[in-house]
Amino acid sequence: MRHNFFYHLHPPTIPKKQARFRYTLGAGGLAVFLSLILLVTGILEMFFYVPAVEQAAESVQTIAYLVPYGDLIRNLHFWAAQFLLVVSGVHLLRVIFTGAYTPPRHLNTLIGLGLGITVVLMDFTGYILRWDEGIFWALVTGTNLVKTIPLIGNTIYRILVGGVQPGSATLIRFYAWHIFGLTLVSVVLGVWHIFRVRRDGGIAAPPTSQRESRKRIPRHTLIQREVLAMLLAGSALLILSIFSPAPIAAPIITGTSNQGETLAPWFFLWIQQLLKFGDPFLWGVLVPSVILIIFGLTPYIFPSVDDSELGRWFPAGNRVAQVSTGLIVVFMIVLTLLALLSPET
C-alpha cells in the first residue's frame, strides 16, 4: 500500500486548521466520492440502457421497474449527479471566498472550472438520455440556443444534434459524449486537478512561519474523516433514492405534437428565465458565457490574496472578487426562483 499511486493523489498530512470541515466544506472530497458513485452506478445502468429513440425511454422504464435494484441504482445515479453539481458549485465558491485561487493555484482553478463545465455537460447529456417527455425543453430549446451563435451556430448545432432537428443521431451522439467523451475529459481533468493540488503545496494555507498553529493532521486522521463523510453522504443518497425517485415520463413519440415538459432542468432554470428577457443569443448564450469567463479570469483580473491571509474565509485582499461572485450567485438564484414561481413555465 505504501507505494500505491493513490498516495500520489492523497496528501500525507494537512495543516490542522485548513483540514476543518468549516473551512473546506468537504466539497472537493465529496465530489470525488460522488464521481465514483456515478461511475459505478453508470456502468451498471449501461447493461440495460438502449441508446435508440424507439427504445431508450422503455429501457429506462425497464431499469426503473423491472431490473432487481434497478430503481435504486438509477436513483443513486440521479441523486449523485445532482449533488455533484451542488458540491462542485460549493467548491468553486469556497475557492473564491477564501482566495485560494491565488497563484500558484491559478492554473488548478482553471482546471477545476473545466471540470465544473464537464459536470454540467454530463448532467445535461445524462438528462437527455432519458428521451422521454420530461426532457422536452432541454432537447429543443436548449439545443436551439446553440443555433443563435453568429456565424458558427448552425455548424455547431449540426455537430451536436447530428441533423437539422433532434432525432436518433442526437441520442447516439449525446450517449457517446456522456459515456465516453465527457467521461474521458472528466477523468483526465479530475486526476490532473487532484495531482495539481499536491503539486501546488496542498491545501491553501499561509507559509509555515506565519501560521497561528503548526499542527497538522496525519493521513489516517484525514482518511477517517473522509470515511465518515462518505458514510454520511452515502446514507443521504440512499435515503433520497428511496423516498424521492428520479424523474421519469412517457416516451417521446416521434411525429406527435405533444410538447411534454416545458420546464428546463433545475440547473438551467436561470437561463430559461433569462431567455424571457428577449434576444436568445444575448441572454441565453452571451450572459452565461460572460459569467463563465468572469469565473475563469478570477485569478487574473482580481487582486491576489496575500500569503498571510490564505487558508481562511473572506480574506480582506480579494473583496472585489467576493462581492462580484456573490452578486453573480444571488443573480442566478433569484432567476431560478423566478423561473420556478412563474406561472407560464
Binding site: P68, Q224, V227, L232, S235, L238, I242
Partner: peptide
C-alpha cells in the same frame, strides 16, 4: 472519531436495511 465512524456505519447499515425492506 472512531465512535462517530461506528455510529455512522450503524446508520448506513440501518439505511441499507430500509432499502432492502423497501425493495421487498
Amino acid at each position: 472519531m472512531r465512535r462517530t465512524i461506528t455510529l455512522a456505519s450503524g446508520f448506513l447499515f440501518l439505511v441499507l436495511l430500509i432499502v432492502g425492506w423497501q425493495q421487498s
